[in-house]
Design a protein around this nucleic acid. Structure first.
Lengths: 158, 158
DNA sequence: CTACAAGTTCAAGTGAACTTGAAGTCAAGT
DNA sequence: ACTTGACTTCAAGTTCACTTGAACTTGTAG
């Protein structure tokens, strides 16, 4: 059965994303199956693997699934996206990554300098400071977040 | 009433950590009040501010509250920790930060090279890969995590 | 004395990203 | 015929780090 279309199990195995997650992504509108078999089983086109790679990649950078959905919506309708399409999407991310790297370097600096020398203080130490959502590594109190759209519960971990 | 001890509201204001979070931290054993007034109100020593600074710092680096608790437990009992105590705790983190920076640089590289050139693939692209909890920026599927102690629900967003 | 701000506890809710479990269908292999 | 395994849906559960709300008590200012 080496058809063009893949079962959900095959996609899970190849992408490393659990089948339950794939169904969840579908529910969120991030991916779509090519249709169903007569018995209702999903069948995926191979192009879904690249889409999943993009999703995992973007998560790793710090985007939420919602943000990823917004990004994916910018892909051309109908045809299978080409390398240039993906590149266009991801170009703005480098800035975000750079900002995060810069923050980490500040933190690193602070570890040896600020904590080391004993000046560790929330008021005077400029290191522990605002960063955008994607910049956040751990959860951290809401206070330190830029974005507090909900104002309730945890701000997205990052 | 500019006593040595601070009310929870004062601590909240000075640290930037919400009062409700302070109570939560106490429940988790991360901080402790110096005792209560007759009416049951918490009073904090000023040293709690430094402890909170450490907590916020550590969160920013990507430690969970549980991990932070483990770290804090290494502080000397009884006496107020000195700069050297804090420094000793945070020294191992620089490695973690370095690893995370390296991963981000790989991701950044991948954005322009791997996605750009069109080779984006979960199977062949070594960039989107395992990292420890603190290394994770966004949540990401469990699959990519090193640590899956629970195996249920979301892994901590890192 | 009266407001009202600030503190208390406790239970329950929040959001993100999934996972788990129950209950069922369907195809292939022995 | 029977078992096994992969798939389906749907509702409910999970983790983390808090927040919110209810119901109540205290402390301070006017």
């Amino acid at each position: 059965m080496k058809d063009v279309l893949l079962t959900i199990g095959e996609v899970a195995k190849r992408s490393g994303v659990a089948a339950s997650a794939l169904r969840y992504y579908e529910e969120c509108g991030l991916i779509a199956s090519e249709g169903r078999t007569g018995s209702g089983h999903r069948r995926y086109a191979r192009s879904v693997l690249r889409r999943l790679a993009f999703i995992v990649f973007a998560q790793r950078i710090g985007l939420s699934l919602e943000q990823i959905g917004t990004e994916l919506a910018k892909l051309p309708d109908g045809r299978i996206p080409k390398a240039r399409d993906w590149a266009r999407l991801s170009r703005p991310w480098t800035d975000q990554i750079d900002r995060r790297i810069a923050e980490l370097q500040r933190l690193r600096e602070g570890l040896t300098r600020c904590i080391g020398c004993g000046c560790l203080s929330l008021e005077h130490c400029a290191m522990v400071n605002r960063g955008d959502r994607a910049a956040t590594l751990g959860p951290g109190p809401l206070y330190w977040r830029d974005d507090r759209p909900t104002g309730k519960g945890r701000a997205p971990t990052r």
